[in-house]
Every structure is written in structure tokens, then in C-alpha cells.
Design a binder for these strands. Structure first.
Length: 877
RNA sequence: GGGCGCAUAGCUCAGCGGUAGAGCGCUGCUCUUACAAAGCAGAUGUCGGCGGUUCGAAUCCGUCUGUGCCCA
């Protein structure tokens, strides 16, 4: 247990004593988050002079709980807003939920079912009351889970699509669209879910290949018969024609005649229609206008009656022996009956074909003729497409644009009415004399004998389409709208580009006088398991992110997700990777702990270059390059790359090399040690700032300990100072080369890592002279004393390292090592020689490339000379 | 059926015209006083097949195969 975790306001000097040797996320995360909220860091001020930065949350479903997809999306959004906040923007991350009409109603109906009741037993008002009650008690679990993740949302502005204000927005835009004749009521074939008992829109239908049957049935008798093929025999009871292609010679003589429809005794016409494919099956199709969208169109063209034979639950209503049968039972029964009459000429079973299912409950969709409300999307979709086409809205990554256009430019009218009770009720009243009145939010609905309101509610997407401005107070002209609309970025999955993004574009442009709801749409992929498989409950590979957060900390989950986030690409995640991220957090923890124990400081200015060691100058140079790199990557939503850049900079450069090199300087003391303490403080300070948006908790705990400042949440985002030092960089690279080379020798000679070895360093004439102490420290090399005998001499980077291994070295190991290097050098030589011997290459390749090859050849030749000499000097074995 | 994408180390992925990279995993040696949730060293790839463009192709073009997604 460490109390510093709870007390980051403690002074830097005392802090180090309290940091435990391992990072324990659970001790830090909860308290830090609550403090951030209490401090009001996440609250947006619309009266601020700062430039605005606003992101609306893709509203999670009120019935939902946090899954990895949310965690992924929220990590991205939170990182973007945290960085912008640090950069001095007035940031608003707008939280809230949608009411999820069908899903929520299903949940509450299931609850009722346990009590043996249906919603009809309660009646509409009591049922809606019951849903609200459920929402208060069990809904919105996800909001608490968002806190665990560290989401910096403005909780004071939380919104729900069924709130009064948002409901007013819905009514307002409905009325406006109605008055503009962009909403209308019409009888059409819609996608009907016989289980949810409501219409759903085209995009709420999921198609999948199912095994069914294809039966060919002979209609009519003798010369006047036609064979039609169908997968839906049960609908034949509602057939009102047979259609053939007008140019099809086989049936020309029958067009205009009537034939007998089996089992019914009815006679139906044979019609000619261009849309019949003469190549498919027999070239003749049965026409059921009430139960198939294509047939409905044929029916319209030929003025055929639409005869409904199924009710809302998919049960046969047609009089006769099949009445009361479910659609699937009816199918078998009807096929059997047809077979008994000798009318089945062919059967194909199983016959795999594409079948639509309800995206909510997976029930097979039943196309159904019914009266519904529609949005006429033509002009709205046109505007939504144009906003992207003319660059006012940028879709990132750009490749996703074609998908957007493909959809928006081929949009069918949108069915918005749902036969549910939970949702925004359609604000239309019908009068006794057939009047239809659409009522705005500030108007009184008509009263009196015979007036009644439409019983349907609106599609949930209708209200979530208003989200970017309804949450800011629209239709009121609020200061929030003024400040934060249009929002800056929309971060969401490519899977709801159609469901949600396009709706917001249409409504935003329409309601806000042509101003799109966001400037940039940043699309991310889907979270998958560690083998790239889609996560699903039924497959058993779904993971609860809360489990991982408990086990490894929220930062670890966040970092793993960020590190996998390539724009628009699916992100696989596995527990091993979360563990690796946790290890990284622990590494940062311990490196900072080391720094604090060694007096790293952020006090005063960073000393001038002249007062710094080469290692100091090198790491400051790299630090600034990293700031610039991370900034550029943030602007491009390249989370995977920026996380990786930070990971490698922190671990491979700061922790593995700079910290190790600084140990020698710090041990010596004096002004140079003071300077290095300041540089160490600076490097950690800036690195923690850079990491904070992605891993907010561990960085906050460490940064407050390091700096004694209030909070990293409101600290300034670092700028690239422009400092670069190429010379220091080369110098340190040489040190690394020597150290690595000798380490390799040691390892292959079987020396224990900690074993001290006497050595003589020949560094004269190289930049390494200044680094002798560090090199000795890193390589565990002792001074050469009396009786020193060099048993091995390693030439590297212009210097020589001679070691006394007190006795014979392992000649075979050394020969193997040198031979391997020599082979590599010779391969390099032959490759580069071949290139340089190619006239065409010399003539056409750009000069820098040729130069590079020449340099490689020269280096290879030097290596060969050196390695050959070393090999020759080895004693024979 | 139409469209889009992807095939690179055992796994998951970067790289997208000039010496094949990362993380995890794997093999050795180490509890070296920030960290064994670590350190150091090491092994591993005809960059899906075939053709073409180019001085040069994992990278550009064509084609085939496999695979995933979206739409109908």
C-alpha cells in the first residue's frame, strides 16, 4: 500500500519514498477519476474565450453495458479530447444514451412475461411508466463503467434521447419536415418483424444465407399451364398473377389470359413485365403483391389486387384448410397439398438462399404491406453527400468515402414509424372527418369527439440523428450551440456509417441551415479477438473489458486498444497484449521512481547545451523529435503509430539507454549531475504529458509526484522546441554500437551478465573518450591492473576493447561469431558490388541512392578486413 | 450477382519503389542496488502463385487462388 498514490500533491522529494516497486492500478484509478470530476476539469464552459473542441458520444444504448467496442471508441475519443484540453481548447465531450426503442421494450416485456403479463395487460401509459422505472433502476449501467475507463465527459451535460428537451427537438424537426413535405404517410411493403411486431427499416435487416427449399409448381392446366419456382410456397394463397418477360416466346400465347391458381380455385391473369428475368428458373414468376416488395411493384404496374394472407404474427389468415397455421408450418402443408395434386414438378432441397432477419431478434423478416410514415430522403441525402463531396466534411480514412457515397446516393425513403410504445410518439392527430394534423411542440393538439393521436412511435435513429445539436439545446438558440456547433470530430465505427452518421448528416444540414454536424468523421474498426475473429457471445470469445481493467488496470486496456488502432481497420486484442501494456505502465512507473530517487527535477530552466553531456543533448533532441512526430500522428488519427512511437521512445531510448547512461553522470556528482537531473526531470515530464491522453491514470500519479503540480489533466501539451543535435546523436549511436558489440561477445563467451571483467579501452582519437566511464559501467568492465593480459581484443567503431578473460577464451564460439559477421559482410559486398557494376543503375538511380550503396560497400569492405584479421589472430584449435 | 478490402516471422499486424520491421511467443544466460510485470544476448521470412513495368518491386500494373466485409 502506498499513500503517495492517494496523495500526489506531496512534494517531489518525499514522493519517491512512497512509490512501491510495482504499479498497482487499483490504488490509483478510482480516486483520481473522482478527483478529476470534482475539480470540474471535464466541464465545458460555453462562455469561454478559448477555441472550442467538441465531440458527441455515439450514444450507447440504455440497455447496454460496456463492451470492448465501447472501450475502444472511448479510448480514442478520450485521448483526442484530453490532448485538445491540454492544448488550451475549451473541450466538450458530450455524454448520453439513446432509448433504444425495440431493445428496451423487449427487455421490459421479458420482465413482464416473468410476471405472466403482457404490455397489453398494463395498457400503454402504465407500460411506458414501467419502462421509465426500469431505466431509473437498471438502465445506463454503462455510465458507471465509463468512469472506470477514465472517460473525461462533462457529466453535468448528460442527455437521454427521451428527455424533455430532446423530445421537443424530435417533435420540432418532425413538424418542419412534415410541413416541407419531406415526411409522408403511405402504404408500402415494409420489413416486418413478426416477433417484435413492428416495422423496421431496410438497414435493420440482416441478410444471411439460409437453407430453404425451391419448389417448382405447375399453375393452370394442360396447354394453359405455367411452371413457377418459389421458396415461399405459403404465399401462393395470396398470388394475384403470374408474370413472364414480354419477349419470352414460350409464354407469349398466355399473356393476357387467366390460369387457375391451385388449391384456391381462383383464376389469375398472366401478365408481361420487363423485370422478370427469363433466364432464371422457368422464366415465370408467381406474383404476391402483399408479401413481396418486387411483386408489389409488379402489382402496381399491372393494377393487380394485393391480397394479404398472413397476419402480423406470420399466421395464415386466408380461409381454408391452412388458416391458423404459422407461415413455416403452412409452407410444408401447402407443398404437401400441391404434391398430392401432382402439381410439384421439381423440388430442390436444401436450397441455399439469402434471407432477411431482424437485426434485433434474428427472426425471419416478413415483407408486409402496411401504412407507415416515411422520410423522403432525396434532397436530404443529396445535401449529405455534397457536404462530403465539396470537402466541408472530411471522412477519415478517405477510402471510406466511397462507401458513404455508395449508400447516400442510392438511398430509399426511410420508414420511420414503429409499432411500439416506447419512443417518441408520432405527433399527428386524425380527426373524425379524415383530418390529419401534425402538431408542433408549442401547439395544442386538437381535442374533441373522434380525434386521436397516431399510435406509432418513431425509429430510434430518428432521434439519435439529431444528437449533435439536440444535446446542445436545439431547438432553443443556446450559448452551447453557438459555442460548440458544429462539433469538431465524430468518432465512430464504420459499421454505423449508414445507421447513424448519414442520418446526422441529413438532419444536421437540414435543421442547422446547411451547417454540417461535424467537420471530420473519424471511423474506426471493430474489436476482434487475438486471432482476428469477430467477438460474439455464441462463439464464446467475447471479453468483458471490466475483467481486464480489474486485472491489469484501465490504462493497460486503453493502451492496448490505442496501440491497435489503425484508422478504419479492425483491431484484434488478446489478454497477452493487455498484460504487455500493463508491463509498460509498470516500466514507466519504475523509471519515474528511479528518477525521483535520484533527484530528478523540473525546477528552473533546462541548462544550455554547452552545460550538458552528449547523452543529455541526444535525449533532448530525440524528445523534441518525438513531440513533433506524436503531434503529426494525432492530427491524422494514427493512434497505433503514435502509441508505438511513444512506447519505443520511452522504453528503448529513455529507459534502456538514457537512464542507464545518466547513472554514471549522476554518480559522479557536480554541476554535470545537476544538469542531468534537470534533463531527466524534463524528459519524464514531457514524456508523461505525451502519454497522458492514452494512459491518464499512471501518468497522472507519476507526474504529480514528479512536479508537485495539481494535475496533468490541465497541464500544457508540450511543444517541439526545435532543439536537435545531430552530433550528439551520432556520438551516442557509437557508444551503443560499442556496448552492444561487446555485450554480444560476452554473451557468446558464456560470461555471466554481472561478471566483472578487467579491460583496457583503446578509445583515443574517437568521440568515445568522454564515455569511458559509462561504457565500463554498462559492460561491467574493471580497470586493467597489474598482470593484465588481453585474451581478446575487439576492434569496433574505430576503438579497441581488450578483455582479460583470465585464461583461454572459447575459440570456437568466437570463430563462429566472427564467421557469421564475415559472411554477412561478404554478402553485403557482393550485393553492393553488383549494383555498382550495373551501368543502368549508375546512370538512372538518383545520386543519393548511389552514394548510399557506395558507403555500404566501403563499410562492408572495412568489416571484411577487420573480421578476417580477427579470425586470423585466433589460435588454431 | 455487384462493390470494397486483405494475403509479410509461430500468432496479430506495420511498412507501400532503393539494406525485410514491431508486439506477443520461442531459445539461452542473469534476482547487476528503478523495474524478474525486468535485464542482456539469440533464432525465425523464395513479403500468396504467375506474368508485366522499372536500373531496381513486399511496395506500381495485370491475372489467378484463398479470405473477409458491405450491398442486392
Amino acid at each position: 500500500m502506498t499513500d503517495t498514490n492517494q496523495r500526489p500533491d506531496g512534494g517531489a522529494s518525499s514522493a519517491s519514498e512512497h512509490l512501491s516497486t510495482q504499479y498497482t492500478p487499483a490504488e490509483v484509478e478510482g480516486t483520481l477519476y473522482e478527483r478529476w470530476v470534482e475539480a470540474g476539469y471535464f466541464e465545458a464552459d460555453e462562455k469561454s474565450d478559448k477555441p472550442p473542441f467538441c465531440i458527441v458520444i455515439p450514444p450507447p444504448n440504455v440497455t447496454g453495458s460496456l463492451h470492448l467496442g465501447h472501450a475502444f471508441e472511448h479510448t480514442i475519443i478520450d485521448s483526442l479530447t484530453r490532448r485538445k484540453r491540454m492544448q488550451g481548447y475549451e473541450t466538450l465531450w458530450q455524454p448520453g444514451m439513446d432509448h433504444a426503442g425495440i431493445a428496451t421494450q423487449n427487455v421490459v416485456e421479458r420482465e413482464l412475461a416473468k410476471e405472466g403479463k403482457s404490455r397489453h395487460d398494463l395498457g400503454r401509459d402504465a407500460f411506458v411508466e414501467r419502462v421509465w422505472q426500469w431505466k431509473e433502476e437498471s438502465g445506463g449501467r454503462i455510465l458507471g463503467q465509463m468512469r472506470r475507463l477514465g472517460d473525461g465527459v462533462d457529466w453535468s451535460r448528460e442527455r437521454f434521447t427521451m428527455d424533455e428537451g430532446l423530445s421537443e427537438a424530435v417533435q420540432t424537426i418532425f413538424k418542419k419536415l412534415y410541413d416541407d413535405e419531406l415526411i409522408y404517410r403511405a402504404e408500402r411493403i415494409i420489413n416486418w418483424c413478426p416477433r417484435c411486431l413492428t416495422a423496421i427499416s431496410d438497414i435493420e435487416v440482416e441478410y444471411q444465407d439460409d437453407e430453404g427449399e425451391l419448389v417448382s409448381v405447375r399453375y393452370g392446366e394442360g396447354e394453359e399451364s405455367i411452371v413457377v419456382a418459389t421458396t415461399r410456397a405459403e404465399t401462393m394463397l395470396g398470388d394475384t398473377a403470374v408474370a413472364v418477360h414480354p419477349d419470352d416466346g414460350r409464354y407469349r400465347h398466355l399473356v393476357g389470359t387467366e390460369i387457375e391458381l391451385p388449391l384456391t380455385g381462383r383464376r389469375i391473369p398472366v401478365v408481361a413485365d420487363e423485370h422478370v428475368d427469363p433466364e432464371f428458373g422457368t422464366g415465370a414468376v408467381k406474383v404476391t403483391p402483399a408479401h413481396d416488395p418486387n411483386d408489389f411493384e409488379i402489382g402496381r404496374r399491372h393494377d393487380l389486387p394485393a391480397l394479404a394472407v398472413l397476419d402480423e404474427r406470420g399466421v395464415i389468415t386466408a380461409h381454408g384448410p391452412f388458416q391458423g397455421l404459422d407461415r413455416f408450418e403452412a409452407r410444408s402443408a401447402i407443398v404437401a397439398a400441391l404434391r398430392a395434386e401432382g402439381r410439384i414438378v421439381a423440388e430442390k432441397r436444401p436450397y441455399t438462399h439469402s434471407v432477411g432477419h431482424c437485426s434485433r431478434c434474428k427472426t425471419t423478416i416478413e415483407p408486409r404491406l402496411s401504412m407507415q410514415w416515411w422520410v423522403k430522403v432525396g434532397p436530404l441525402a443529396q445535401a449529405a453527400g455534397d457536404a462530403v463531396r465539396d470537402g466541408r466534411v472530411r471522412i477519415h480514412p478517405k477510402e471510406m468515402e466511397s462507401r458513404y457515397f455508395g449508400w447516400v446516393d442510392n438511398l430509399h425513403d426511410w420508414c420511420i414509424s414503429r409499432q411500439l410504445w416506447w419512443g417518441h410518439r408520432i405527433p399527428v392527430w386524425y380527426g373524425p372527418a379524415g383530418e390529419v394534423v401534425c402538431v408542433g411542440p408549442d401547439e395544442e393538439p386538437p381535442t374533441g369527439e373522434g380525434w386521436h393521436q397516431d399510435t406509432d412511435v418513431l425509429d430510434t435513429w430518428f432521434s439519435s440523428g439529431l444528437w449533435p445539436f439536440s444535446t446542445l439545446g436545439w431547438p432553443e438558440q443556446t450559448a452551447g450551440l453557438e459555442k460548440f456547433y458544429p462539433t469538431s470530430v465524430l468518432v465512430t465505427g464504420y459499421d454505423i456509417l449508414f445507421f447513424w452518421v448519414a442520418r446526422m448528416m441529413m438532419f444536421g444540414l437540414y435543421a442547422m441551415d446547411g451547417t454540417p454536424p461535424f467537420r471530420t468523421i473519424a471511423l474506426h474498426g471493430m474489436v476482434r479477438d487475438q486471432f482476428g475473429k469477430k467477438m460474439s457471445k455464441s462463439f464464446g470469445n467475447a471479453v468483458d473489458p471490466l475483467d481486464w481493467m480489474d486485472k491489469y488496470g484501465s490504462d493497460a486496456v486503453r493502451f492496448t486498444l490505442a496501440r491497435g488502432a489503425n484508422p478504419g481497420v479492425d483491431v484484434p486484442i488478446g489478454e497477452d497484449w493487455v498484460q504487455a501494456s500493463r508491463n509498460f505502465c509498470n516500466k514507466i512507473w519504475n523509471a519515474t521512481r528511479f528518477a525521483l530517487m535520484n533527484g530528478a527535477t523540473v525546477e528552473g530552466p533546462v541548462p544550455q547545451a554547452g552545460e550538458l553531456t552528449a547523452a543529455d543533448r541526444w535525449i533532448l533532441s530525440r524528445l523534441n523529435e518525438t513531440v513533433a512526430e506524436v503531434d503529426a500522428l494525432y492530427e491524422d488519427f494514427q493512434f497505433a503509430k503514435l502509441s508505438d512511437a511513444l512506447f519505443h521512445f520511452a522504453w528503448d531510448e529513455v529507459f534502456d539507454w538514457y537512464v542507464e547512461l545518466s547513472k554514471t553522470t549522476l554518480a559522479k556528482g557536480g554541476p554535470q549531475a545537476d544538469a542531468s537531473r534537470r534533463v531527466l526531470g524534463e524528459v519524464l515530464d514531457v514524456t508523461l504529458r505525451l502519454l497522458h491522453p492514452v494512459v491518464p491514470f499512471v501518468t497522472e500519479a507519476l507526474w504529480t509526484a514528479l512536479t508537485g503540480s495539481e494535475s496533468l489533466v490541465v497541464a500544457e501539451w508540450p511543444d517541439d522546441s526545435g532543439f536537435r543535435d545531430k552530433q550528439a546523436r551520432e556520438e551516442i549511436a557509437t557508444v551503443q554500437q560499442v556496448v552492444t558489440e561487446v555485450r554480444r561477445f560476452r554473451a557468446e563467451q558464456g560470461l555471466k551478465p554481472g561478471q566483472k571483467v578487467p579491460a583496457r579501452l583503446g578509445l583515443e582519437g574517437t568521440a568515445l573518450v568522454a564515455h569511458e566511464d559509462a561504457i565500463r559501467q554498462l559492460l561491467r568492465l574493471q580497470p586493467a591492473e597489474e598482470g593484465f593480459q588481453a585474451t581478446a581484443s575487439l576492434p569496433v567503431a574505430g576503438a579497441t576493447v581488450s578483455l582479460d578473460l583470465s585464461g583461454a577464451i572459447d575459440v570456437e564460439a568466437e570463430r563462429k561469431r566472427l564467421a557469421k559477421d564475415l559472411a554477412a559482410a561478404e554478402k553485403e559486398k557482393s550485393q553492393t558490388t553488383a549494383k555498382l557494376g550495373n551501368e543502368a543503375f549508375l546512370a538512372k538511380a538518383p545520386e543519393p541512392v548511389v552514394e548510399k550503396i557506395r558507403a555500404r560497400l566501403a563499410a562492408a569492405e572495412q568489416d571484411i578486413v577487420r573480421l578476417t584479421a580477427q579470425l586470423d589472430s585466433l589460435p588454431d584449435s
